[in-house]
Design a protein around this nucleic acid. Sequence first.
DNA 1: TCCTTTATGTAACGTTCGATACATAATTAG
DNA 2: CTAATTATGTATCGAACGTTACATAAAGGA
Lengths: 221, 221
Amino acid sequence: MQKLDSASKPDQKPPRARGRPRAFDRTEALDRATRLFWENGYEATSIADLTGAMGVGAPSLYAAFGSKEALYEEALRHYADTNQHFVWDGYFAAPTARAAVRALLMDSAAALTGCVADMPRGCMVALSNVGGDGHDDLRELVRGARAITLDRLKDRFARAVAAGEIPASADLHALARFVQTIQTGMSILARDGAGREELKAVAALAIAGWDARLAGDGAQD
Amino acid sequence: MQKLDSASKPDQKPPRARGRPRAFDRTEALDRATRLFWENGYEATSIADLTGAMGVGAPSLYAAFGSKEALYEEALRHYADTNQHFVWDGYFAAPTARAAVRALLMDSAAALTGCVADMPRGCMVALSNVGGDGHDDLRELVRGARAITLDRLKDRFARAVAAGEIPASADLHALARFVQTIQTGMSILARDGAGREELKAVAALAIAGWDARLAGDGAQD
DNA sequence: TCCTTTATGTAACGTTCGATACATAATTAG
DNA sequence: CTAATTATGTATCGAACGTTACATAAAGGA
């Protein structure tokens, strides 16, 4: 669609568009939309809400983003781009799988309770249900986004097995599901008002479960 | 249709109401409505959806239930009445707090993945967000319903401390939040397709965390 | 300059939303 | 029987929904 400036040199400057320039900052508008969807979900956020918060007329919104569904998709991507690092940077920097899980859950406890001022509580991805009727494509999109956590955990655990940190007998899938359950559940608790210290205590208990299962091994329950 | 041999003895039957009798079974209609709300949530379920599934005209629906909000409230209560026992019976019957938690999580793993045929996945209470705009009363109602779990857990743990099962030094609130987080998170995973055995493995890991924290005690992390 | 292109603001589109007026049917009370 | 009462079906209400036509404004290309 874009990037086909065949003629001149591949300048790094965005050459001014042709027609009337848009009067609003597209990224900032997207940011406002993201926050609304994050707080209220897809169904409960109307176009009127969006245009109001974005400071943009409806035709401009549609010209810039296509449709409500397309805007939601972009908002979801924007959310991931701008908020992922709060939760995943420590995870990817950690030297061991245990430290990675600990970082993920502790950083999640912080981020989900508003690590920066006036951030909505809970994870936009975890909390979007995107109602069951129409919008099957959005539902799949969100499910896919939620599945990424599981994949990352399983990948990391597999490497930990290769590195000898985790015994080969461990059920990596179950461990990943466990961590995913904790992180997901924390979003709903955060939305309901649970505080940061409460969620950190939950994370600490999850780590205790991790240790118990991986130290004791085969502690059949 | 049903048992209307009026001629015979004057039973202590509920005396027939005065006007034209309603042509549908109120409880069954409520059951259908509950299922719809459970599957799709409040916002994504329209009156047309409801009247269709309940086999009732809109005026009858409003005459019987008042409004969409009132119907949702009643559906939520109906859901609790008819489904609570799947998850809480074992909990209340358990002799120890540990056994109670184990029963709660294991039974939740079963119930949330459809312990009876064709039951929606996940807990209706945990999964309702009830969008942020209007409907503040419903949001509070659902939050209150979610808070019940925490109260029950803390009550049970307090009794376990009194009975000497749990050391008095334990952080009962954190333990309760931990269990609540697991159970809540399992609902979203179940809705996304996680299987019963996966969730039972998660429950087992949570119990391992419980044991680790309560056996080792003060295992500061 | 004029022409094309793109964005904006107003105003409205058709649809669906939750909720009802109204006439009619079905039942009890007297 | 008649009167009162309640439920149902049709048809529709005003409002809000997501979306777009249209005329106008602001930019670059000729």
